[in-house]
Design a protein around this nucleic acid. Structure first.
Length: 270
DNA sequence: ATGACCTGACCATCAGGA
């Protein structure tokens, strides 16, 4: 008698929608953050530039919508948070040393299947003849060293406001940035050092002009597409293949009282 | 070459952003 054993392997695919957004003050952007949560229902929301040193205010704001939040905060400047579905199995891997007394970075680990989500507000670094520029480069190097270590253990998503214009066509008019910290060869070198850890830029092959993420309040006219691409998702190749959808949510730059940055979104089937 | 515009600090005006 022939015996047949049937082994059924059930692979549970789940969808994760991740949004990253430099809101330029959470207090000022409450209505738009509420809007994006209701409309997009992200599983994970990475925020930069909270500009408030009140941890409870931040987590209470997001708990109204049944999310959990981890934050690094500081008075007036900087500040980052990662808000996520309560059902997700997570750990806080945030590295206080990387912040160098400025709240610019936090890390959420998705336990299954082991994805480290690193949320960043990179230093601006202007003017380039000041110690702010050397601080920027130092900070970027330390981020690189830490991600290099995390990469041995986890799949990686690096996101946030990188404050780097990697290539000339990532700006509508690069000439205006010749003396700007965002486009200096040293800043770009640090950016590509990070990317060369085998991290892929999700929007790299999109039309650059329609992938700008920042539009200056003063100098530029949003409607003329005069912006720069400085907000990113860098992901490991395994995750790049799982991306089902990616978008720059330009509509949030058009709304009343907007941030100068657009939210960026990816959806993964893991 | 400089400032514009927006935010938080705090109440008149400046620091910081990019």
């Amino acid at each position: 008698m022939l015996k047949i054993h049937v082994v059924v392997v059930v692979h549970l695919v789940f969808k994760v929608k991740i949004i990253s957004w430099n809101v330029n003050s959470l207090r000022a952007r409450e209505p738009l953050v509420q809007e994006i949560i209701k409309k997009e229902k992200p599983n994970i929301l990475c925020i930069q530039e909270l500009k408030i040193d009140d941890h409870d205010y931040v987590s209470d704001f997001f708990s109204q919508f049944s999310y959990q939040t981890i934050t690094q905060t500081q008075k007036s400047y900087n500040g980052v948070s990662i808000t996520y579905d309560q059902i997700l199995d997570t750990s806080d891997l945030s590295l206080p040393t990387l912040n160098k007394d400025q709240a610019r970075n936090n890390i959420l680990l998705l336990e299954k299947p082991g994805i480290a989500i690193i949320n960043n507000y990179f230093p601006n670094g202007n003017p380039i003849d000041s110690d702010k520029f050397s601080f920027k480069l130092e900070w970027m190097n330390e981020l690189y060293e830490n991600i290099k270590k995390l990469k041995d253990k986890y799949e990686i998503i690096v996101t946030g406001d990188f404050n780097v214009i990697p290539e000339d066509n990532d700006a509508h008019d690069i000439k205006g940035y010749k003396k700007d910290a965002l486009a200096q060869p040293e800043s770009r070198k640090e950016f590509f050092k990070l990317r060369n850890l085998d991290l892929l830029d999700v929007f790299e092959n999109e039309n650059k002009k329609s992938s700008y993420t920042f539009f200056d309040y003063k100098t530029y006219k949003f409607g003329k597409e005069e912006g720069i691409r400085i907000d990113f998702f860098l992901v490991t190749p395994f995750l790049k293949n799982k991306i089902m959808n990616k978008k720059v949510l330009k509509e949030y730059r058009e709304m009343e009282r907007p941030s100068d940055h657009c939210p960026i979104l990816i959806e993964l089937n893991i």
